[in-house]
């Protein structure tokens, strides 16, 4: 049941072929260059306080941490508050989205009921609707809700999280559903025969077997929430309530006064939680759990 045991029956028979390894690394390096290159401009802009974003190909000609210190210590921007808000909202949304999505995926994968397939399809279709007026509609809705329940109205984190949870069921549910289908039914059937209820099967058996996809969905949901500014900027009004994305976008929304170095520095700092979360979740995504547990 532990990781080494899983690895044990990976094919070790074939020997490594140096040419093949080299080719693989070459491919990975080319892809890395493609992925990283535009980000070097961002990093360069972050380190060059008076610089532009794309004015010059001479990257890193002036390097300093001015933008970072300006951002973090500035009285003008409650940067650390924004950061905290983003973390709270991002992590909460990610955790709850995974939870709500997994519940639904379990039902769709394990139970047979009328409207199952149309229901699945409907979840995905709902999210295809062009979001042209979403911002106006959400503003109106949260204004109304806020009149009755101020705690989840405009300008509250809980309100924003609720809006994000509206998208918890959707394509991610389908993704989990597909993955749930790969977990053999015999496992939960055996447990049921032993007297475990459906809830127990879900929480203690299924959830642990589908960890990779839960981790992926959590990461996707966190990134989407962390970087969203369209909805967050309408819902969160006071500076102290706002998220990092909202705060940062405002710095560059007027092209004439766009502070690209501060924005880029902020974007670099904002990438840290995403990277950290990925590093933390990576072992769950590719931990080889499924194979081991199914055995």
């Amino acid at each position: 049941m532990s990781a080494p045991a899983t690895r044990a029956h990976l094919p070790r028979s074939r020997r490594r072929r140096p040419m093949r390894t080299l080719a693989k690394h070459a491919a990975a390096i080319v892809a890395s260059a493609f992925a990283l290159f535009p980000l070097l401009y961002v990093l360069s802009a972050a380190l060059n306080p008076t610089g532009t974003l794309t004015g010059s190909n001479e990257l890193f000609k002036s390097v300093g941490l001015d933008s970072f210190t300006r951002l973090v210590t500035s009285d003008q921007y409650p940067f650390l508050t924004w950061f905290k808000n983003s973390l709270i909202i991002g992590l909460t949304t990610a955790a709850l989205s995974v939870f709500l999505g997994a519940l639904a995926a379990y039902a769709f994968s394990r139970m047979r009921f009328v409207g199952r397939r149309p229901g699945l399809l409907g979840l995905v279709l709902v999210q295809m609707f062009p979001q042209l007026l979403a911002v106006v509609a959400i503003f109106i809705l949260l204004t109304e809700i806020g009149e009755i329940f101020p705690a989840i109205g405009l300008n509250t984190h809980a309100g924003l999280i609720s809006v994000y949870l509206g998208a918890a069921l959707g394509v991610n549910t389908y993704l989990m559903y597909g993955f749930f289908n790969t977990v053999p039914k015999e496992l939960d059937e055996a447990a049921m025969i032993d007297g475990a209820g459906h809830a127990r099967v879900f929480f203690t058996i299924i959830l642990r077997l589908v960890t990779p996809i839960l981790a992926v969905v959590a990461l996707l949901s966190f990134i989407a929430t962390f970087n969203d500014f369209v909805i967050a900027s309408v819902v969160l009004i006071d500076a102290d309530q706002q998220t990092l994305a909202v705060g940062l976008y405002r710095m560059v929304s007027n092209p004439n006064y766009a502070d690209w170095s501060a924005f880029a520095a902020g974007a670099v700092l904002a990438a840290i939680p995403v990277v950290a979360l990925f590093l933390f979740l990576q072992r769950y995504i590719v931990g080889g759990l499924t194979a081991g547990a199914v055995k």
Binding site: S32, L36, V42
Partner: peptide, 10 residues
């Protein structure tokens, strides 16, 4: 990690 980075930026 590198492959995920483009996604971590706005």
């Amino acid at each position: 990690l590198v492959m995920v980075l483009p996604y971590a930026f706005p």
